[in-house]
Amino acid sequence: MGLAAFRTSSNKQGDSGAGASVGRRYVGLFFTLPAIIFTLVFFILPLGMTIFMSLHKWSLMGEHNFIGIQNYIDLLTRDSQFWNSLWFTTRYTLLITPAIFIIAFLLALLVNLPLRMIGVFRTIYFLPAVIGLGTSSLLWVWLLNDRVGAINAILKLLGLVDRPIIWLADPNYVMIAIIVSIVWKTVGFTMILLLTGMQAIPAELYESARVDGANYWEQLRYIMLPLMRRTFALALVLSVIGSYLAFDQFFIMTAGGPQNQTISVVYWIYKKSFTDFNLGYGASMSIVLLVILVVLSVIQMWLLRDDTTY
């Protein structure tokens, strides 16, 4: 029955552009229903709940009562740590995003070469991406350890340092250490995204460029890079959102230290919600972060907008 209805409606598609039948509209609804339900249950409802909570003094224990936009007022006027955290997270994002992109792009170029066994290398570079972030953070805590860590042992062996570096106790070293660990963890994923973009470019374009005498760098500059705009946009948005939502690495590797200098925004939301038991306030910070991320994503999409078709 459903199939028959579908067939009739798809037949009708050709004959009239103006008035699609009621039946066809229902079929459309039917096919999008799973996506609608999924979005409703796992995004719209929780979002509504979060907004609702953000307007309350909502303790993890005991009662909650409506306080209007007081949480937002407190956030804007009294919570300096939130703004410190936002600035810290922004700095972290500004440092880590180029690092990930440059390395991922170079790796993607490398594994795009038509060599035998190249799949093995793709797999190797991608492997860290399948490790849980919590697990990899703990792994790096031990790699960076001053007494038993491999990194200090290697540096000492190479004669680069006399005494072990306490990576996670100095604000500058912490940033380096965490960025290295996260690049290692996520670069494989960005590499795969960029590789997909590279392989989607039709080979004829390169061929005709070669016929016109373009060398490798010119092909890269004038064909590959411009045609990968959409892929870059996708990878960039995903990467920036991921960096802004950073939590595990700071929670596990530094616990916000040294001297509270590595508290990311999500870490601060976590602390307000589950250490101070102030869920309503945590919810209001989540909403503010959501707004910031939406704005940032729109700007990125606009900057990398692309109407090219081929």
């Binding site: 805590v141 001053d146 306490i166 106790a169 596990i252 530094t254 616990a255 230290g257 040294p258």
Partner: peptide, 11 residues
Amino acid sequence: PAGAQADTGTD
């Protein structure tokens, strides 16, 4: 040990 400063409890 100097590493004590960075130890979040894992050690």
